[in-house]
């Protein structure tokens, strides 16, 4: 050990680095500790607290929360027709919005991935992403203004003797579809782009026309990407309460939670909130089986 570098005793930093080098698992734990803590406390933890809240009840006289485990809130949920209607309407809306987004996104994504030139493709990606940069509230208010009685939609349709969808379920459906469409276009675009062109050529070479190739080759290969996109459109619709409130008088589950909080009946709100959580968890389990997580 004649070299000068070795002669000097190693500093603390060097020794620490060497120690970590010899203990790779410890290194990994240190690295993951902070983000994992964040995920556990902020996401999983809050969900757990929410769920736990659903088992308390509100004392109807004092208006205070009674901390005794009870299933009262769930009994209320299942025995009140309104909540059943709300749940079905909300899930139905989420399904409808998702289906519409798929129908609209597929041709756009197909054009972007397989037909457009490189330049046009870049422009289209920007065009699809651009609406995400604008504030959600601004966009919903813009729709509200357009949809209301004296709004631009009715004004434009008036000469034809028609009038717009007004404020109702159709309005919610339109606005949700508008809002979440980019979340569907991008995964489908990525999924389509990943399919090698030679697969389509091979199908054609083996005698298949475009329709057959689409059903048997393109669709199965891009399905995980579609499911990935639908996770966004579905769960975003399930949880939103601002859009229904602004563009219609119709209520979804989110509005019911909001109302319950206004009472304030925190335990009931928590119980209602657990419905979309359960639906989404079930949906994610199905999505995982369809291979959607590899396409995110």
């Amino acid at each position: 050990m004649t070299s000068a570098a070795f002669a000097r005793p190693p500093g603390v930093r060097r020794r620490l680095a060497a120690f970590l080098y010899r203990h790779p698992r410890l290194q990994l734990r240190l690295l993951l500790a902070a983000p994992l803590a964040w995920v556990v406390v902020a996401y999983v933890g809050s969900l757990a607290v929410l769920f736990a809240n659903a088992f308390w009840r509100l004392d109807s006289f004092t208006g205070k929360v009674v901390f005794e485990p009870t299933l009262d809130n769930f009994v209320t949920l299942f025995s009140t027709a309104v909540y059943r209607t709300l749940a079905l309407r909300t899930v139905g809306m989420a399904v409808l919005v998702t289906a519409t987004c798929i129908a609209l996104a597929f041709p756009i994504a197909y054009y972007m991935a397989r037909i457009a030139s490189r330049r046009v493709r870049g422009l289209l990606v920007v065009a699809v992403l651009m609406p995400l940069w604008a504030s959600y509230l601004v966009k919903v208010y813009a729709w509200r203004t357009m949809l209301l009685g004296h709004g631009v939609i009715n004004w434009a349709l008036a000469p034809f003797g028609l009038h717009g969808p007004g404020t109702g379920e159709v309005a919610i459906w339109l606005v949700f579809t508008y809002l979440w469409l980019p979340y569907m276009v991008l995964p489908i675009y990525a999924g389509l782009e990943r399919i090698p062109g030679s697969l389509l050529e091979a199908s054609s070479d083996l005698g298949a026309r475009a329709g057959f190739t689409f059903r048997r080759v393109v669709l199965p290969l891009v399905l995980p990407a579609v499911v990935a996109g639908s996770i966004f459109t579905f769960s975003l619709t399930l949880g939103d309460y601002i859009t229904p409130q602004l563009v219609s008088n119709t209520k979804l589950l989110g509005n019911a939670i909001y109302d319950a909080l206004g009472v304030p009946n925190l335990p009931l709100a928590a119980a209602i909130a657990s419905i979309p959580v359960v639906v989404i968890v079930a949906y994610l389990l199905v999505a995982r089986r369809l291979g959607a997580f590899e396409s995110l």
């Binding site: 090698p196 030679s198 697969l199 050529e201 091979a202 199908s203 054609s204 070479d205 083996l206 005698g207 298949a208 026309r209 080759v217 199965p220 290969l221």
Partner: peptide, 19 residues
């Protein structure tokens, strides 16, 4: 078009359908 020709191709990347 290819689907109406009496030829078949073996592709360089094989182009097997992965699903």
């Amino acid at each position: 078009p290819p689907f109406d020709r009496d030829v078949n191709t073996v592709f360089q990347d094989y182009a097997l359908f992965p699903h």
